[in-house]
């Protein structure tokens, strides 16, 4: 990928469409997983990332049950490459994650209070930072995650946030780079979404 002087939209176009940039996305997801692994002190497997255009009408089918209690961490991607990220855990997995992070036995954390939410936000922030580091290195651009916003609610309501900011008026599709993460016991699972800035993805 040519460095420098590339607009955010051109960088996204390269990342999303060129076969040779696939390894950048893979490396990004690997680093996100490595950061998660370091924080919870256990191996994390990462699925191969894929890029897809999800039709708005199928968004809820894509996420599964739109009513299920979910923890979603929303972050903006800021700098020379702009976009947003959403990291989704089930409520149970988020509680488990907080236990792992604090070195407690699984089941010790019962509710996602302010402190636990902040811990989950921190984890997401680190994961996205790992992904963005890889992209920044390859593109020679300066990119940072915003502070995280943690939501605990129905999955559909959480996904509304990225739909409303990504769908923009001109498209009925949500462009998403997605990967799945699991720990070795497959207890902990999460979905990691990166979405190009809507103005750049059109």
């Amino acid at each position: 990928m040519p460095k420098r002087e590339m607009s955010s939209s051109l960088m996204w176009l390269h990342l999303l469409t060129r076969p040779q940039t696939r390894n950048i996305l893979e490396e990004g997801m690997n680093r996100a997983a490595a950061n998660l692994s370091k924080m919870v002190n256990r191996p994390i497997k990462v699925g191969e990332p894929w890029v897809e255009a999800i039709p708005l009408s199928q968004l809820y089918d894509h996420i599964g049950d739109p009513e299920v209690a979910t923890v979603g961490i929303y972050l903006l991607i800021e700098g020379e490459l702009r976009g947003q990220s959403l990291i989704l855990f089930s409520e149970g997995d988020a509680l488990y994650l907080v236990d792992l992070l604090n070195g407690k036995r699984p089941g010790a954390t019962k509710t996602l209070d302010a402190l636990a939410r902040s811990a989950v936000g921190e984890i997401a922030d680190n994961m996205l930072a790992g992904f963005l580091n890889a992209v920044a290195e390859f593109t020679g651009s300066s990119i940072q995650p915003s502070p995280p916003a943690v939501m605990v609610d129905m999955a559909g309501a959480i996904v509304d946030v990225v739909a409303a900011t990504s769908i923009v008026a001109n498209s009925d599709h949500l462009i998403v780079i997605e990967s799945g993460f699991k720990d070795e016991d497959k207890i902990l699972q999460c979905r990691f979404w990166v979405l190009p800035d809507p103005a750049d993805a059109g």
């Binding site: 708005l56 009408s57 199928q58 968004l59 809820y60 739109p66 009513e67 609610d153 129905m154 999955a155 559909g156 309501a157 959480i158 996904v159 509304d160 946030v161 739909a163 009925d172």
Partner: peptide
């Protein structure tokens, strides 16, 4: 679903919008 509108006259029908944010 999002971006849909549904009108029904079916007496058994229940229209549902899940997980509105």
């Amino acid at each position: 679903s999002i971006g849909e509108l549904v009108v029904s006259k079916s007496p058994q029908g229940v229209l549902v919008a899940y997980g509105l944010g």
